[in-house]
Design a protein around this nucleic acid. Structure first.
Lengths: 337, 337
DNA sequence: TTAGCATGCACAATCGGTTGTGCATTATAC
DNA sequence: GTATAATGCACAACCGATTGTGCATGCTAA
């Protein structure tokens, strides 16, 4: 890092150039000059000088004095996925719109990395921290509380800060219904559906399983434990789990509920190896990927409403609720029916 | 934003608690205490106090005084794509490893947003700025130069700062070769290949077209201008361009060179509408997407070596080159052959 | 016994803004 | 022509760290 800065311009430099005081320059540049009764003439002079000299305020100094960093933070399991990257993108856009600077850190679904990232963000004095899909959101909330910083959970709920999540149960119910509708339209061998992917420990997976079972129950179908495979979020895990599931069986399930695009990747790989095609089954996927949709128009997908979720997050930030357990659920859209 | 901070702990508080001076506390906490001959005993006392009280240094104050923010910035066209999101993820991991805090901003391939993001990052006194896939990298470089901040171009080259990019020409040549090899193995109708996607203005697309033509020329094949459709990066654009291309024709091209996964999405959508399958052609795609790979094992893809590119970026940061026009090209991998 | 050095720490200036306060000067009121 | 108010700006303290410098005290050596 070769920062042999040719000394950046400060308000002191501008004050000298404009033959005025630093405090006046500061007031003019941060917009408080009318309140401080600086003359229009002097303000113009300072502004044009700042412009021509390429002045840029030192945000660290400003943050220090104002005790407001202007930074808002987010921790994210990973970028490399359409859902999470879309979250990051919307978050950044909304933050910018509010004059906030967004900082996002990936924490790989690792509680230690989550804490470490939160610690760094708090050290940089973020004004608010959003923990997305955190494995341990409550610890983050406590850390934020101790620093007097607001925190919000996104995607996975916590009990110590407001949470904005998808309505996983209802989404899963609708996705399952869509699968069952299509099954009913075809002469299917049976109406068993294999549920695969996700973590049995996480709230979303549990809710989705509940919605899945509920949709079946509403049609008088029971759900067997053996048909539920929450084998974690990873393509390989899904591939291995499916392999094991299929070993004693000779025919493909009629349908599958795949609990994430990453699990879908494993499922598709397994199918390819066995010479099967995705079209040999009816497949619903909880999560959305545009390339998958293009490749496979019959694939039913629950697309989480990322834009709306981020909007809700900022609403909570703007008008903080006294209720730390506030839970906001956003409906996903069912695509491909 | 409700930052009614219950006053965070400072070195002054710790000094009072430890019955010592702020400068001593500072030295102990930032590791310079041995050099300043602080006794082990006092250091231990301060450290355990800081730990138990949950002290966290104010990075704005540190940055102000040290004139080093500890922040490194990156601008990115968008997150929502496997290539760019992977870049962000590797960048962040490498930055963290060096004790730097990474800040990434999306600029939507818009020069104005690129400048604005760069301005903000410079205001936050980033120590270095990486412009990824910037439409106007040289302006960013100039802005950084004026602030005495190092800048580096990634993915698309610039002329005023070192650049790390894929070897697009060679990658395209290899990808085209792989397509031609497969064409040779089949009784293809002809050996024309449709090149679709990308921007004719951008360096990468031009290089890829050059590599494409070169591979063909090496086999004695000429390339017709009509078979090159740089219709921009967007699924819809590719779909529309393909539609127009096919209108006067009755048969699919034997093969396609698709210049990004986003263009691939448009191509696949057009094929679906026409009742075609991707397997009806031989398809090579410059870029990689794991879901696409899973869905379509015969798809040939050039996967850019993101990890290696980021490594090169940090090498340039660590040992700055006197040559602002330094161009480092990294070989992509050809997948699916 | 005292000069000389090492040890252990505190002081105060500083980074670049922000903001409460105060003081001239001019304008208005009576 | 004087009292009062408005105008226009400068001063200085402060945010929380970092760091050059200096001063006691204790120890060693002559």
């Amino acid at each position: 890092m070769v920062s042999e800065s040719p000394k950046r311009l400060t308000i002191y430099d501008l004050a000298r150039l404009a033959d005025t005081s630093p405090s006046t320059v500061s007031a003019v540049l941060n917009g408080s000059w009318q309140r401080r009764r600086i003359s229009q003439k002097l303000a113009d002079k300072i502004l044009s000088l700042a412009e021509s000299e390429g002045y840029s305020a030192n945000m660290q100094a400003r943050a220090l004095r104002r005790e407001r960093s202007g930074i808002i933070g987010m921790i994210l399991p990973l970028y490399d996925n359409r859902y999470f990257s879309s979250i990051a993108q919307h978050f950044e856009a909304q933050a910018r719109q509010r004059g906030l600077f967004a900082i996002v850190a990936c924490t790989n679904r690792d509680p230690a990395q989550e804490r470490e990232a939160a610690r760094m963000m708090l050290a940089y004095r973020v004004e608010c921290l959003v923990s997305t899909g955190a494995t341990d959101p409550d610890t983050i909330s406590v850390m934020c509380d101790e620093s007097g910083v607001a925190s919000i959970n996104l995607d996975l709920p916590g009990s110590k800060a407001p949470s904005v999540i998808s309505d996983n149960r209802e989404g899963a119910r609708q996705l399952t219904n869509a699968i069952l509708d299509r099954l009913a339209g075809q002469a299917a061998r049976d109406d068993a559906i294999l549920f695969i992917g996700g973590r049995s420990e996480d709230h979303n997976t549990r809710e989705r399983i509940a919605g899945f079972s509920q949709a079946r129950a509403e049609r008088g179908l029971s759900t067997s434990e053996a048909d539920i495979l929450p084998c974690d979020y990873a393509a390989d895990k899904a591939q291995v789990a499916l392999e094991a599931y299929m070993r004693p069986r000779s025919t493909l399930p009629s349908a599958m509920f795949v609990n994430s695009t990453i699990s879908l990747e494993g499922v598709v790989r397994w199918l390819q190896r066995g010479g099967y095609q995705l079209d040999d089954m009816i497949v619903g996927c909880f999560d959305w990927d545009p390339l998958a949709a293009a490749f496979h128009p019959h694939l039913i997908m629950a697309r989480q409403s990322v834009g709306e979720m981020i909007d809700r997050v900022f609403e909570v930030i703007d008008t903080p609720s006294p209720d730390a357990r506030l839970l906001i659920e956003v409906q996903p859209d069912i695509i491909g029916v």
